[in-house]
Amino acid sequence: MLKPRILILHASGTNRDRETAWACELAGGNPEIVHVHQLRRGERRLADYQMLIIPGGFSYGDALGAGKVLSLDLRHYLREELAGFIAAGKPVLGICNGFQALLKSGFLPGDAGLGPATLTFNASGHFECRWVTLLPDPRSPCVFTRGMEEPIVCPVAHGEGRFISDRVPALEEHALVALRYAHEDGTPACGQYPANPNGSEGDIAGICNPAGNVLGLMPHPEDYIVRYQHPRWPHDGRGGLGLQIFINGVRYAAEM
């Protein structure tokens, strides 16, 4: 089987693109880091890829709000290409800054009736780098978390990850909250810091669109793809690898 081609979008200030590419390789994909300029100039076409990842970073310095200027790129320069890609059911993953951009551009939650939502400054008032436990919702249509039975663990590293929306009940009702912050034992964080590291409403760490092929999440599954990245590996500490998200995405892309 041919490895699915994965476009990893790079904008000025993107910084987790290289480790995301490595996660894609380990998951069996064929990643390529592509600059947003290359797409705008037509040197690359989104339609030639089977999967899109918008990775973490500080696109355009997060001036005017995290992911804001990148969201304008998505809305103005890549609107039709991206809308077509999503409508075709191809998987799209936005991590951290990528989630912020997908949310602020309206591609997530992807249904006007379920928005708007935003990701703003952490309740703690500052950047947080720490490991979190994420509970997948088994009811969610999300293709990236499909079949996940145990929680996954990975770090968060952000200053603006607090999910705010008036439509949280609606998101929950449609099972679009694919990943929630949880305590280490897998019980819901219920807003408690630091299990919920940023004060997100409904412990929301990640949401998907109703079709399930677009996922945005604040934590970094690409930073837990081998055992030695876990903070407690010297104590034999483990937990679900973030790699599973990429494996699911790649498998889905390959099956399409």
């Binding site: 500052h126 950047f127 780098c129 590293a157 010297p234 104590h235 500490g237």
Partner: peptide, 19 residues
């Protein structure tokens, strides 16, 4: 914790350790 000490995925023994 205000510094991102994880980016790059290569910080295997971190500045904070233990259970």
């Amino acid at each position: 914790r205000r510094y991102d000490h994880e980016v790059g995925g290569g910080t295997l023994i971190k500045p904070l350790v233990g259970v």
